[in-house]
Nucleic acid binder design. Structure first.
Lengths: 346, 346
DNA sequence: CTGAAAGCGCTTACAG
DNA sequence: CTGAAAGCGCTTACAG
């Protein structure tokens, strides 16, 4: 038995397909009795309209898509409920679409925009480094949220989309400077791959500048890069990188880890080496995911202003949907949240 | 400027839309020169076909959807790569679709099946307790993976779909029995809500039966239920439940936590009470997520056979797609993996 | 309030 | 190898 169509329902009800369509879509012009009769048949046969046909025919939807690169990023996961709430409150339908790390997010965005007649798109993750020509072709309002890349902190972000981000070098500077003021001079770092030119590079640059400003020489031996074969901010990578760092037998009293999840692995590596946190090694993370409150000791980390970032992303998207030609590139301040993983050596 | 259609490209190339379609879809009958000419225009104008039109017209796709209830479940996340690998190796396109906890997963499954002309669906999470009439209407092969519910462990699972799961009561029994054999008699449990009739109830029943078989009276005061207002297997809930349990001042030497993520919060609550793991309280988790290796001490937990479950789900789906009328309900054995969070009191 | 008709943007036999 | 035509399953002016 093939799937039912609107035509089958129409036949079963002795009405036209127009009427069935009106019943399903709650068209106010339809007679209530007719509607109920049609809907009872719809329910009885478990009829489900074909969304492809619907999307194809409708000239516009009321839908915003949240496209996420990296489903298993707990930092992004923490944002979902806020996005959902904000978008629904603004009267939009909303769905989450996850794409793999190697997908072309802008192409996918356009593809879905066409397919679903989207009102707008929020892109979570990814980079700012899209060629201008790509963004120029975007047919639908788009906001980049929590992206990283060269463009972000310069005055000229991509001109065809708005963006919301933090200042990665600045926040990394704050972390490093904080550790220095707590009396640490040998500060290690767990960063991205050597080839990384997004968050890894940006945060490394902030770290270097802070050392420089405090008259501490930069020591490449205190940097652990992520394995390029498996570039993920996971516990396993944090563990591997920290273990590698400890094996070098270079002295250090603190480590800055550029992602909270990696800090979890780093903790384990430190414990496995028979060392204590923070007595032997102080640790600072980055992102501010919920889990960090439950680590032992609780992790001092940079908490990104998730709610503000979400609110602004939605606000900027609404503005674009409303016809605004203005594009904004907001950069928010994050908060270095002191907990129990850093030793004050003063 | 409105979005381009196949018609625009045809006009620009001085060919028919059929030819453009053939170029885009790599139809072997097309002249290579023509194809290149068309594709260069496609690229130049960044033309993207409308998938709704495509899906509507095509009679079948080669696509399997993985529908997941609960994106932020790290146990499910651990399965994604395996699913991806298996499905691609079997020659299928694949995409992940996440739905919220309150969505009707079977309805959504049917909706997407129609929209995308799916070959099959794997439903990850959710329950086995679908009315038979609902599953009977499924127009497309479906396998339920890692579901829980009354039906699973009985001989008659839903007859219109296959399923792959573990035996929740049995595994909970193993955990409890293990703790008893390690010399524990006062064993607490962090479970689901009072109303839960899926994993929470099933694992609780296994726990009770193990106590019974070992002549240990069941004590309701040693059970912490999840708050029904916020029924999630999160660190925060684990922390809150463990804290509540400790406040009761009932003596216990071990606790069985029905989800690893909750165990993370439970650890913190135990530490905050000035107690040690496992010296004061032994802890056993459930699921076997990666993170548990990095806890301090590393968590003894029930590791679900993720790879087997994925492989079988895909295999059963392939069989259904291939026309098999047989439906199987596989129940796998999980592994109680001993690590460092349980004290041997013998 | 309801129906007949046009058309959304594609794919795919069919004919040449 | 290419084009004209039919049609996928809906929605929505338009007419009555």
């Amino acid at each position: 038995m093939a799937a039912m169509t609107i035509r089958d329902i129409a036949r079963l009800c002795n009405v036209s397909i127009s009427t069935v369509s009106r019943a399903i879509n709650n068209d106010p012009s339809i007679n209530e009795k007719t509607r109920e009769r049609v809907m009872s048949v719809v329910r009885k046969f478990n009829y489900i309209p074909n969304n492809s046909a619907r999307n194809l025919k409708m000239t516009e939807s009321n839908t915003v898509a949240l496209i996420v690169k990296g489903v298993n990023n707990p930092f992004f996961q923490g944002m979902f409920p806020y996005f959902q709430k904000e978008l629904v409150e603004n009267g939009y339908d909303y769905f989450l679409h996850t794409i793999s790390g190697d997908a072309d997010e802008v192409y996918v965005a356009e593809e879905i925009a066409k397919e679903k007649r989207l009102k707008g798109i929020i892109l979570l993750g990814g980079t700012m480094d899209y060629p201008d020509v790509v963004l120029k072709n975007m047919q639908v309002p788009m906001v980049l949220c929590s992206v990283a890349g060269r463009g972000v902190n310069e005055t000229t972000g991509p001109v065809h989309v708005s963006s919301v981000s933090i200042d990665d070098p600045k926040e990394a500077y704050k972390v490093t400077d904080y550790l220095i003021h707590k009396g640490h001079r040998k500060i290690a770092m767990l960063t991205g791959t050597r080839e990384d030119n997004t968050v890894g590079l940006l945060r490394l640059s902030g770290y270097r500048r802070a050392l420089e400003d405090n008259g501490i020489p930069y020591d490449e031996d205190l940097i652990a890069y992520m394995d390029a074969q498996n570039p993920e901010y996971t516990e396993a990578n944090g563990y591997a990188m920290m273990t590698r760092l400890l094996k070098r037998k270079k002295e250090f009293t603190a480590v800055f880890v550029i992602a909270d999840r990696m800090a979890i692995g780093a903790y384990k590596a430190i414990y496995d080496a028979g060392l204590k946190i923070p007595q032997d090694i102080s640790v600072v993370g980055f992102d501010g995911i919920e889990l960090t409150r439950y680590m032992e000791p609780s992790l001092t980390t940079v908490i990104q202003p998730v709610q503000k970032m979400v609110d602004s992303s939605v606000r900027l998207l609404m503005a674009q949907i409303g016809g605004s030609q203005e594009r904004e590139h907001l950069v928010y301040e994050a908060e270095l949240h002191e907990r129990d993983s850093v030793l004050d050596k003063n």
